[in-house]
């Protein structure tokens, strides 16, 4: 099973100079756990709810702390033809929960562990049926 159908194609995009409070609000309003950051270098960056948690744990003032401080600049990316098991293992071993999905090097969507878990668990459930 390829990850293509599981990829959410409506990406939330933010800028490195945006503050974490506004970014957290946007992520919450859009019900997503990560946002993409397009940089001049070409490779997209990522900011996730885990990064927001880290900022909170460090006592950061979210209104004056920028995305650039907590973002990951070179995240692991996938393509739509990746197998779901390959994606799951990549996330589990890497300890992250979101994969930016590229097509020809252009970000076209995001795969979250939530969507992957749902798909794999539903598949697992079906496999248990007589």
């Amino acid at each position: 099973m390829e990850i293509g159908p599981l990829v959410r194609q409506r990406l939330l995009s933010v800028q490195p100079e945006n503050n974490l409070l506004d970014t957290a609000r946007k992520m919450y309003e859009r019900n997503v756990g990560a946002a993409i950051i397009q940089t001049d270098e070409g490779h997209p960056g990522i900011i996730t709810e885990r990064d927001v948690l880290r900022a909170v744990s460090e006592g950061a003032d979210l209104a004056s702390t920028t995305v650039g401080v907590y973002m990951t600049t070179t995240p692991v990316c996938a393509t739509t033809t990746w197998d779901v098991v390959e994606a799951a293992k990549t996330m589990r071993r890497g300890g992250f929960r979101h994969l930016i999905v590229l097509d020809d090097g252009i970000p076209i969507g995001m795969l979250s562990i939530r969507d992957l878990v749902d798909a794999l668990l539903e598949d697992y459930e079906r496999s248990l049926l007589p």
């Binding site: 098991v85 799951a88 293992k89 589990r92 562990i113 794999l120 496999s127």
Partner: peptide, 17 residues
């Protein structure tokens, strides 16, 4: 966690693939 159960679900999916 779902992550724990993901490991359980990975194996049958990989076997079927």
């Amino acid at each position: 966690s779902a992550r724990h159960l993901l490991r359980a679900a990975e194996e049958p999916a990989a076997t079927r693939a």
